[in-house]
Simulated scan of single mutants.
Amino acid sequence: MKQMIKVGLYGAEFFARHGYYHEEQILGNYFTVTIEATFDQQHPDLNDDLERTLNYEHLHQITGRQMKEVKQLLESVAQGIADEVMAQFPYINNLAVEVKKLNPPLKGRVAASGVTVYVNAG
């Protein structure tokens, strides 16, 4: 029987300077990132071994690096995270990377705007 594993990082918060408008890149804003990845169980028994699974600490580190690279579009931010995750963990079958900008500079109160990139690799 084939088993799938899903690993997630939910609502990781970062301060970054992404935005289309110059003011957004100067002032910065808070963003949250959620990542969900599925993959085939690589070994019949994981034996509680961190090296045999997708490490969500690595997902957080990848996201932190990507959030430091200022981009105009949330799509570009999410795609950059997805690309680096897939490069480091090529055995992932499905990946979803959601980036939300908290309190975006819009007329009226908006909790967040967001983009999700989906990768189906297998």
Rank of each mutant, 00 (worst) to 15 (best):
T53A: 15
Q79Y: 13
V77F: 03
H22G: 03
Y30G: 04
G80S: 10
D83T: 05
V97N: 06
A96V: 04
Q88S: 01
D40V: 03
L106D: 02
G122S: 08
Y91C: 01
Q88K: 01
K6P: 00
M1F: 02
A87Y: 01
F15W: 11
N120Q: 15
G108R: 03
F14P: 03
I26R: 05
V99L: 01
R17D: 12
Q42D: 12
A96Y: 03
V110S: 04
A87S: 12
L59F: 15
V99N: 00
N103V: 06
V115C: 13
M1H: 04
E75R: 01
L46Y: 04
T38W: 10
P90N: 08
V85W: 01
M67H: 06
V77H: 07
L59I: 13
E69N: 11
T32E: 08
Q41A: 06
V110Q: 06
K100H: 15
P104Y: 02
Q88E: 03
N29D: 12
L95D: 03
F14M: 05
G122Q: 02
R52I: 05
Q42E: 14
V33F: 07
G19Q: 14
L46K: 02
R52E: 13
V70L: 09
F14A: 00
Y91H: 13
E57A: 15
R109W: 13
H58G: 11
Y21K: 08
V117W: 02
G114E: 12
G11Q: 09
Q72C: 13
A37Q: 14
A82C: 13
Y21Q: 11
Q41T: 00
R52S: 12
V33Q: 11
A96C: 04
E23D: 15
E69M: 11
F14Y: 05
I35Q: 15
